[in-house]
């Protein structure tokens, strides 16, 4: 039973990873920027929520705070990331890293360094019983919301005209203007959507892992691995990558609890060795 519940934990974790990594992956695919500040949007989501939910209620806060995070994403794109488009990848990486370090410290100044806890909402704080397995309702709730987010993103890129532009943009930036769209606007939209998803994921995971300034950095590194495993800009790939990483991290505790952190990297090494573009990666602008 322990194995099964660890496996389920891994799936839930994987869905969160996938939801976070998706925004990271799309920004990288369309803009060619390694966006380290993606992790801080995850943190912002949780802290906005922490500040809001007692006054406005659980569900409204769950909608409002990702919107605030999306606004942060918009500002970051306008003020910071757009400065490094087309430059050496280290520029994008460093400028967003710098921003992240500063924001993390700002949060530490305001809220202190300690981990703060949020309780699971009353509608989902019990357990579900499957045969002789007890499983947390809240984790199932997370899984459902994360799946919905990923499904929306997938439908958005597969079925809408705008989604087609996004996909074309990853293949060739010039195609975007050829299709009658503005590349700059596209990059902003992607950034805003990605931040929204990361912010919501931050809220979802808050009751389980707690709210702390370093939580964003902790989720960013798995996102890296997820993107490299799944293939840049591919939504199904990101989902598979996320699930693989989540399950590896969760089940890995059975094998070698101390080195569980590096297992996803080994997995990634193997995948990238045999499939340099990741499992579902296509030719794209960053090559």
């Amino acid at each position: 039973m322990l194995e099964l519940s660890l496996f389920l934990n891994g799936i839930v974790l994987g869905l969160i990873y996938a939801a976070v990594a998706l925004g990271f992956s799309l920004v990288l695919g369309v803009s060619g920027v390694i966006n380290f500040s993606h992790g801080i949007t995850f943190t912002f989501g949780a802290y906005f929520f922490l500040t809001m939910f007692k006054t406005v209620g659980y569900i409204p806060a769950m909608i409002l705070s990702p919107l605030c995070v999306a606004l942060v994403g918009f500002i970051v794109e306008r003020l910071i990331i757009r400065r490094v488009y087309g430059q050496d990848p280290l520029f994008g990486l460093l400028i967003t890293l710098g921003f992240t370090i500063a924001m993390e410290e700002l949060i530490r100044m305001i809220y202190g360094p300690a981990t703060q806890n949020i309780n699971a909402p009353s509608f989902a704080n019990g357990v579900v019983i499957f045969g002789d397995l007890l499983y947390s309702q809240y984790r199932l709730f997370i899984a459902a919301v994360a799946t919905l987010m990923i499904a929306f993103a997938w439908i958005f890129t597969e079925k809408t005209r705008f989604g087609a532009v996004v996909k074309a943009g990853m293949f060739d930036n010039e195609m975007v203007s050829a299709l009658g769209h503005n590349l700059y606007r596209l990059r902003v939209v992607i950034m805003v959507v990605g931040s929204f998803m990361a912010g919501l994921s931050g809220i979802l995971s808050a009751p389980i892992w707690g709210v702390k300034p370093g939580m964003g950095a902790a989720i960013l590194m798995p996102s890296f691995v997820v993107v490299l495993i799944g293939g840049l800009g591919s939504i199904p790939g990101t989902l598979i990558g996320g699930l693989l990483v989540g399950v590896t991290l969760s089940m890995g505790t059975l094998v070698a609890p101390r080195f569980v952190d590096i297992m996803p990297y080994l997995l990634m090494g193997v995948v990238v060795y045999f499939r340099p573009r990741g499992l579902m990666g296509q030719h794209n602008i960053v090559e």
Binding site: L28, G32, I34, D88, P89, L90, L93, M221, F224, V225, V227, L228, R258, F259, D261, I262, Y265, L266, M268, V272, P276, V286, E287
Partner: peptide, 24 residues
């Protein structure tokens, strides 16, 4: 590897080294 991929793989490598040093 080129550009972004090169950078990302070096980041990942650093993380692995950190993981080993921190846990072993």
């Amino acid at each position: 590897k080129k550009g972004v991929y090169f950078a990302m793989l070096t980041v990942a490598f650093t993380q692995v080294c950190f993981g080993i040093a921190f846990r072993w």
